[in-house]
Design a protein around this nucleic acid. Structure first.
Lengths: 143, 143
DNA sequence: TTCAAAAAAGATAAACCTATCCTTTTTTAA
DNA sequence: TTAAAAAAGGATAGGTTTATCTTTTTTGAA
């Protein structure tokens, strides 16, 4: 459902957001370490997050990645849309190209209820709120 | 979440089950057509379903695939376990290796609730029940 | 008993996703 | 002005999944 790249992206965004609230701009290397992801690949993922304006990047010495105030209020679904595309929460569990309430696959109704709930939670949860949960120390970005 | 192979497998199993109730044993070609999947790949998927005893195969003329009575009562989760493995409904939405109620990722609780509901529905829904729904004509295996 | 039909098995290819490396561009502080 | 730091971009490699093709085995019927 959610690609590995996208999982890295969510972890990275939440870490960057958690540091941004302390006015710190971590670089690729630090971010990769904190989320336990390969540095070079993390760089690519961060490039995308920056391209889609989910985080902001600053080049040069003392540069790095950070979140502006309004970016903290972006819902997590924005990350998924940017990295994996907008179809993720619309795909049929049995792979039909057109599966809907009107033309359902045999598992449509039981599946779509949960899928819609998931979509809703991705739409309602902001990057900033996850960052605050992380700062409080009750949740983790690595093992 | 669920691989393309596994989606083909579920569609194929439900079709075979729906024909088995009429004592018909379709072959690879017919099955591939009915579920709109590539024939050669469908053959591989069917091989696995047969290996894991989710459907039964018969070689030679008048051969094909069918479900025995007890196979109709297998829950759909058995197909997922056979094709994609048993970890599918346990994976962390943010990709942590060990994510649990005790060591949660920032999205753990909102995600795992829905994931557990999905697991339950895969455990409680049998291949035979989906086949009967299909036979009644209210749900579809292709577009 | 032979033959043809059908699945099983094995080998290979194509496509996609993940990952790495190297060069270029931009920015900053000294 | 310049050297260093950092992200951006391009090229390429590795791995996994998806897909195809060919050969082998099994089986029922003529």
């Amino acid at each position: 459902m959610i690609s590995k790249s996208c999982k890295y992206a969510i972890r990275a965004a939440v870490y960057i957001a958690s540091q941004a609230e302390k006015n710190i701009k971590p670089g690729v290397k630090e971010i990769a370490e904190e989320i336990e992801a390969p540095p070079a690949f993390t760089a690519k993922v961060l490039q995308n997050l920056s391209k889609y304006k989910i985080v902001t990047s600053l080049k040069g010495p003392y540069g790095g990645f950070y979140c502006e105030k309004h970016q903290l209020d972006l819902p997590v679904i924005e990350i998924v849309n940017a990295i994996d595309g907008v179809a993720v929460f619309k795909e049929c569990v049995m792979g039909l190209h057109s599966c809907s309430d009107e033309h359902p696959c045999p598992m449509h109704f039981q599946y779509s209820e949960n899928r819609n709930n998931l979509l809703l939670s991705f739409q309602q949860t902001t990057i900033g709120s996850l960052a605050r949960d992380l700062a409080e120390g009750n949740v983790y970005l690595k093992n």
